[in-house]
Simulated scan of single mutants.
Amino acid sequence: MTASSTPATVPAMQAWGRVRSGRRSADRALKVLATAATVLGAVVLGSILLMLIVEGVRGLTPALFTEPTPGPGSEGGGIANAILGSLVMTAIGIVIATPVGVMAGTYLAEYGRTSKLAALIRFLNDILLSAPSILIGLFVYTLMVRPMGSYSGWAGGVALAIIATPVIVRTTEDMLRLVPGALREAGAALGAPASVVIRQVTWRAAQTGMVTGVLLALARIAGETAPLLFTALNNNSWFSPNLMGGVPNLPVMIYQFALSPYDNWRQLAWAGALLITAAILALSIVARVVLRGGKSR
């Protein structure tokens, strides 16, 4: 036994020594393949991020955050209108999705549980969770844009809300199911009705995970392009306060400007892509920090 070996590791080393050489070779080969795949994925992701940073930083100017998008062939300009439009529609989406998702997740975890209705809702929620966002855009186009006769920020917000809702439902249900049943029983023993126990006990116990779910849903819809093509479209000027007509937004702006023949537009597209990536990364980090802080308590 070496000086670095501990009594706990000796049995494991002896057991590994009894493994046939063929299995040890297969284990090493699998380890090499897994490591190579990890390195390859990290290199590809790092290359994309590096290219995004290099190209996007060039377009970060004060005008980017103060001026609207320029017209075709124009010089200068910024993406202030697209940033504001994205913020407004994302806010509409998350404001609609949060109460619906939280209440639906609460029903599945607290009231429905093993009922047939709850099983059906879970099944539909899973389908919606994996549904292509372009289908949701077409659905909202048929539901709102055609009857209203115009693209609008309201339709874009509803489309984003439909995408965010299943994420919040799933997270809320999972977090509430992790709350020990003894807490519910303690509340019921004090004579509190189920609604009070849910509000005062289970929601408070699971609030960190539920907030994390909302942040993840927010990150999920922040960069969606397909549904906005059918609902909000785009606009190279400031949008109307009533959100009717084309509403500028970062995802569609990036899509249109990146395919344009104008260097100025392509540079703005790189800068907008960098801003969206940074925002999603920040939301993901905040969600992890919030979840980790809740676990430490």
Rank of each mutant, 00 (worst) to 15 (best):
42 A>H: 04
30 L>H: 06
26 A>L: 11
33 L>D: 04
42 A>S: 14
20 R>F: 02
37 A>P: 01
35 T>E: 11
54 V>G: 00
20 R>L: 01
25 S>F: 03
20 R>G: 14
36 A>Q: 04
56 G>R: 05
34 A>V: 08
19 V>Q: 00
46 G>K: 01
47 S>P: 00
32 V>C: 06
31 K>P: 00
51 M>P: 00
49 L>Y: 11
44 V>K: 03
41 G>V: 07
48 I>A: 12
54 V>A: 08
34 A>L: 06
40 L>W: 11
55 E>G: 05
55 E>K: 14
52 L>G: 05
31 K>G: 12
40 L>D: 05
55 E>V: 06
52 L>D: 08
33 L>A: 15
42 A>I: 10
46 G>E: 04
21 S>I: 11
45 L>M: 12
51 M>F: 08
25 S>A: 11
18 R>Q: 15
32 V>Q: 11
48 I>Q: 13
47 S>E: 05
31 K>A: 15
18 R>F: 08
41 G>W: 01
56 G>L: 02
37 A>K: 02
43 V>I: 15
35 T>D: 05
38 T>E: 08
26 A>C: 01
35 T>K: 10
53 I>R: 04
18 R>G: 08
25 S>M: 04
52 L>A: 13
51 M>R: 12
34 A>G: 04
29 A>G: 03
48 I>N: 07
47 S>R: 12
28 R>S: 08
50 L>F: 14
23 R>T: 11
33 L>M: 11
54 V>L: 14
30 L>W: 13
23 R>K: 13
24 R>Y: 00
44 V>P: 00
27 D>G: 13
32 V>Y: 11
19 V>W: 01
45 L>Y: 09
49 L>I: 10
38 T>P: 03
38 T>C: 09
42 A>T: 09
22 G>W: 05
27 D>P: 00
23 R>D: 11
44 V>C: 07
46 G>S: 01
30 L>A: 14
41 G>S: 14
34 A>N: 08
21 S>H: 07
27 D>Q: 10
22 G>D: 01
52 L>T: 15
42 A>Y: 03
27 D>L: 15
32 V>R: 12
18 R>W: 04
31 K>M: 11
39 V>W: 01
39 V>K: 02
43 V>H: 02
21 S>Q: 13
21 S>L: 08
56 G>Q: 05
36 A>N: 03
44 V>S: 06
47 S>A: 15
40 L>N: 00
49 L>F: 13
34 A>E: 00
55 E>T: 13
51 M>T: 15
28 R>Y: 07
37 A>V: 07
45 L>P: 00
47 S>H: 06
18 R>N: 10
29 A>E: 05
22 G>C: 01
45 L>V: 15
51 M>G: 09
38 T>F: 14
52 L>K: 06
40 L>M: 10
40 L>S: 12
38 T>I: 07
49 L>C: 13
50 L>D: 03
38 T>M: 15
55 E>Y: 06
35 T>R: 14
30 L>I: 10
40 L>P: 01
55 E>N: 13
40 L>A: 15
21 S>N: 10
49 L>A: 12
49 L>V: 12
29 A>V: 11
33 L>E: 07
23 R>C: 04
46 G>L: 02
39 V>E: 06
37 A>R: 05
34 A>K: 09
28 R>F: 06
31 K>E: 10
47 S>G: 10
55 E>F: 03
38 T>A: 15
49 L>G: 12
55 E>I: 00
25 S>W: 09
35 T>A: 15
43 V>D: 04
37 A>Y: 01
24 R>W: 02
31 K>V: 09
